[in-house]
């Protein structure tokens, strides 16, 4: 154990976690400039607080915690005007169509966006980021049982959504059909 530049170790470790941190951000808010802002804010926060981090402990969990806290405080400040997840999504898809190779991915992200925030977070942490339920509970600042039930509900909801979109095929018709029939009545 050499007394190397601790900042370098910190930076190296942070760098190695960055791809996963970014995937977390994008899974949470969509492929959106907001995801990049989140990652950037997280890097700066983490850097400023690096003295508080104990080397050898779980930096990934630490960074993820910073990111999600950052996100929720932003959302709170904004008074939840972002509930318009459809609007967000259209923006995402319009902005980066080329990055979506597979329709499957689009469907999935769309489904993900329909979940309540806490459920989305829970299923990503446990199902994709590779955290245990215990770690996820710690990151989200809630009880173990809460995380478990959030993951379960998220999974059920995803299943429902994905089934519906597969069968329906033309989602918007559900909306436009009543309008059309009304038009015919006049």
């Amino acid at each position: 154990m050499s007394a190397q530049e601790p900042a370098n170790t910190f930076k190296r470790e942070l760098l190695s976690i960055l791809p996963s941190l970014r995937a977390f951000a994008i899974s949470l808010v969509g492929r959106h400039h907001e995801a990049d802002d989140l990652v950037q804010d997280t890097i700066m926060k983490a850097w400023a607080k690096q003295d508080q981090f104990e080397m050898g402990t779980n930096m990934k969990a630490w960074l993820f915690t910073i990111l999600r806290n950052e996100l929720y405080s932003k959302l709170r400040k904004r008074g939840r005007e972002v509930q318009d997840s459809d609007g967000l999504l259209t923006a995402n898809l319009a902005q980066h169509p080329a990055q979506y190779g597979k329709l499957d991915m689009q469907d999935f992200q769309r489904a993900l966006e329909q979940l309540p925030d806490e459920q989305r977070e829970a299923i990503i942490l446990v199902g994709a980021s590779g955290f245990s339920y215990e770690e996820a509970a710690e990151i989200s600042g809630c009880a173990l049982g809460t995380i478990k039930s959030r993951v379960n509900r998220a999974r059920q909801k995803l299943q429902e959504i994905l089934q519906i979109t597969n069968e329906g095929e033309f989602g918007p018709d559900a909306v436009s059909a009543p309008l059309t029939s009304r038009a015919f009545m006049t």
Partner: peptide
Amino acid sequence: IAHRLRSFYLSVQE
């Protein structure tokens, strides 16, 4: 679901 979630996440991570 788990599989699709993971492959979505991995595709971004890569």
